[in-house]
Design a binder for these strands. Structure first.
Lengths: 249, 249
DNA sequence: CGTAAGTTTGAAACTAATCAACTGTTGTGG
DNA sequence: CCACAACAGTTGATTAGTTTCAAACTTACG
């Protein structure tokens, strides 16, 4: 039922819609989310604590300086998470897709900013209510702990990439991981769909947009990929990409 | 967190000592560890599940390929955590000190390796037993979730550093964070004691040992630091270092 | 269509890496 | 206790990978 929108600048102006009669049961993200740890009969309680709304592409979901009063579950769409530096550099620390949780790593304020890259549907939970849910549903807390551990591993792998991999290794790793994630969500095995710009990819991989573009061109020339569109990359030789990426991690 | 199965690969040569009469109560690391969330009267149960032992400098605490059967709490000393790449590059993803938890980010196998930089005392818990403890003591699980969230934040900040900061910014950030951690553990406010080599620092910051050395020299020349020993760095102008580091994060 | 944003390509510049030598430190045994 | 070995750290010269600056090209869309 009707989502409030986020204005470009801030929090949703319109009050997010309270989840109604048919809440979480039919949610397409559930099997990928922390909520999969909550039993069907408890979903009502979950839904009651959640506001669900959709953010337009480019909309800010959380700002780095905002007090971290909410956590989110991404129902659909793609989100860019970044940690702006003082002088405007804006390193990207992750991209979120369906089922991903947004809220780990926050302090008093979020410290990071999260922006919608596509139309993004999120379930928003007030922190205190969320803690209460975890108290009520231990499997949910356990699930979140597992998800946090996974996120730590992802972070470590990304640190290894940023610290020690070459530009081609970074791109190969990125394409493989993105396509694998999308395959898990139901996409084709050998396809990577990039909801973000070359600059976003560059900010994520510690490169420039120009370098990203050059490396992709070199992959194309080498027959490793085909650019069906700038945002749609077919992996023609995943094994070769994996060798490249495997500098390690 | 929460890792996988399977049984032993070679842990320490000497059999870890079962914790005896005077277990966790007097532990100098307790106030910094997840165990601070366990009530005194429950400490016995914790101690029963733990093996405590000391690893010599250079000793491997966990190997990347080992099945992740254990988690650890660092009681004392310094640990280097790295994620070796296929060709020998060995990016360092973190350093652990007193009170730090080792085990987040593991999969079936650890995926990372952890090596003692100094004599290191750890409490080791078998995974299954550790899960049981979390079931028994919800505050402990909550505490671990908070620690995991903090580790995610640290990881994000490190990604920002590796992706977008210059060499001097990286070193300034590193020195400030290390000295802050050590101050929290009881050290002097303006001192950073480096239990690791220049190469380790380089592998952590995505640089080379030579660059680390050069930048430290430039800091010294600029009057920002004094090298009391190679491993003992006095921060003479922390505010100036903070400005440098603050490129952001 | 026309415009603006995003992307690709090219040339020059620069940061940090590499290769190499030297110096300082630590630990050991004569 | 000193000599020496082995290793860690520093300094120097050169190189290389990526960035920066600049311009052309594509694509999406009003």
């Amino acid at each position: 039922m009707v989502m409030a929108e986020t204005s470009a600048a801030g929090r949703p102006e319109a009050v997010p819609a309270r989840l109604g009669v048919q809440p979480c049961g039919a949610c397409e993200a559930r099997r990928f989310s922390f909520c999969s740890a909550v039993r069907d009969e408890d979903l009502g309680r979950l839904a009651q604590a959640a506001d669900r709304y959709t953010a337009k592409p480019g909309a800010r979901i959380v700002g780095a300086e905002e007090p971290a009063n909410f956590v989110f579950n991404v129902g659909d769409g793609a989100v860019r998470v970044s940690r702006p530096l003082a002088d405007g550099r804006r390193p990207v620390v992750g991209f979120l897709l369906r089922g991903d949780f947004l809220g780990f790593g926050a302090g008093e304020t979020y410290g990071f900013q999260a922006d919608a890259l596509t139309p993004v549907t999120v379930c928003r939970f007030e922190r205190g209510a969320f803690r209460a849910l975890m108290d009520a549903f231990p499997p949910m807390e356990r699930r979140l702990l597992c998800m946090a551990s996974d996120e730590i591993r992802e972070g470590q792998e990304q640190m290894a990439l940023l610290g020690r991999k070459t530009a081609p290794e970074r791109l190969a790793t990125f394409l493989l991981k993105l396509s694998a994630r999308q395959a898990r969500l139901g996409g084709a095995e050998d396809l990577a769909v990039l909801p973000m710009s070359r600059s976003d990819v560059a900010d994520y991989l510690g490169l420039t947009a120009e370098t990203v573009s050059r490396v992709l061109t070199s992959f194309k020339v080498a027959g490793l990929i085909r650019l069906e569109r700038a945002s749609r990359i077919r992996l023609l030789r995943p094994a070769a990409l994996a060798d490249l990426a495997a500098g390690g991690s």
